[in-house]
Write a protein that binds this DNA or RNA. Structure first.
Lengths: 182, 182
DNA sequence: AAGTGCTGCGCAATCCGTTGTATACGCACT
DNA sequence: AGTGCGTATACAACGGATTGCGCAGCACTT
């Protein structure tokens, strides 16, 4: 249960609305921890009840009003406390990998086309991250170490996945050629 | 909601007890989809109510009795059906990565020691997977494609993570040397 | 003799997360 | 004029997942 801590981390740098956070969870941090907007608004509600964050109402023109949240001292303290104790193991739910494992019963063509779709997404992300890494590298290095390392993780992860995808394509195309021939 | 499908995939090859499945979820498949024994037993219960799996009671000596589950035709049909429709995006919850992102507030030494612990686990897994890959490679290649690809994913993933860990160590040790000196 | 760990199954409570629905306005496209 | 998209927040219902607890016997260590 540390969606709350992920939110606190994001609010550490800058104040943000629930909507802003949702976007960040869809991009950068999303590779590491995902959450939908409903979860985020709910958690922000709890956090502000517990005085870990505060918000100020910001009226806008042409757009709905928003609430900009920021950390309180209690929130920062909670974050520091959490950072000290060991993190639990990472958890993943990768349905596509489950499919590959059960591939013997699957239609190879279906798997291949899904692989393509996913590979495309990964390539896009990779490009985004590489651009981001370069920007971070140029403007101040040491100040952004933690952001930089996070982005690097994203890059290495995408590359590893894409390399694996190549192997899969090779194996499956080989297979489908066999079965087409027979 | 496809813990059920992960279970069906595992039962595709061989009959297994809930306990066996739990072990597999802690090892091989665990990298891709995780589940605890309570979840597994619960899901096996539902699956057998819905006639997707059947079980036979196997008394044992010196050990508790067990139930060996296997797929029914309905279960196999459900699996095939599921394999056809596109998988949702992968979801992850990696608390350690959240910590790195929030590293500015963290104690560098704590992060480094946690990194070591995780790296050790990853190295062990990597060794296990590499051994497994070699065995699969030797005994029949094409029959085990899907297992082989799954294991390959594990290998590439561990390697990417370990490479990243090197970068992190480098950056953080540099940092801690700075702060010690100042 | 007591503690620890492995094999094996399971219930109950609670919490987390997903999905569906709702509201509200402006802008762009068709 | 209608449809869809982006900004912005939020509730309700359901189902999935975690945590805590419990039982039971054998093997091995301390």
């Amino acid at each position: 249960m540390s969606l709350r801590h992920a939110i606190l981390v994001l609010l550490q740098d800058q104040e943000a609305s629930g909507y802003d956070l949702a976007r960040e969870f869809a991009n950068s941090i999303g590779l590491v921890w995902n959450a939908t907007h409903q979860q985020i608004y709910l958690e922000l509600g709890k956090l502000s009840e517990q005085d870990m964050v505060r918000y100020r109402h910001v009226p806008q023109e042409g757009k709905p009003d928003k609430k900009l949240y920021s950390l309180t001292d209690a929130g920062r303290a909670e974050l520091v406390r959490w950072l000290k104790k060991p993190a639990g193991p990472a958890r993943i739910r990768d349905a596509f990998m489950v499919k590959v494992a059960g591939g013997a019963l699957a239609d190879t063509q279906v798997l291949l086309s899904e692989l393509d779709t996913l590979a495309k997404q990964r390539r896009e992300r990779l490009a985004t991250f590489e651009a981001l890494a370069q920007r971070l590298d140029e403007s101040g290095r040491d100040e952004n170490v933690y952001n930089y390392l996070t982005v690097r993780r994203g890059i290495l992860d995408q590359r590893a996945w894409l390399q694996w995808a190549e192997e899969v394509r090779h194996s499956l195309e080989h297979r489908s050629a066999d079965s087409t021939a027979s």
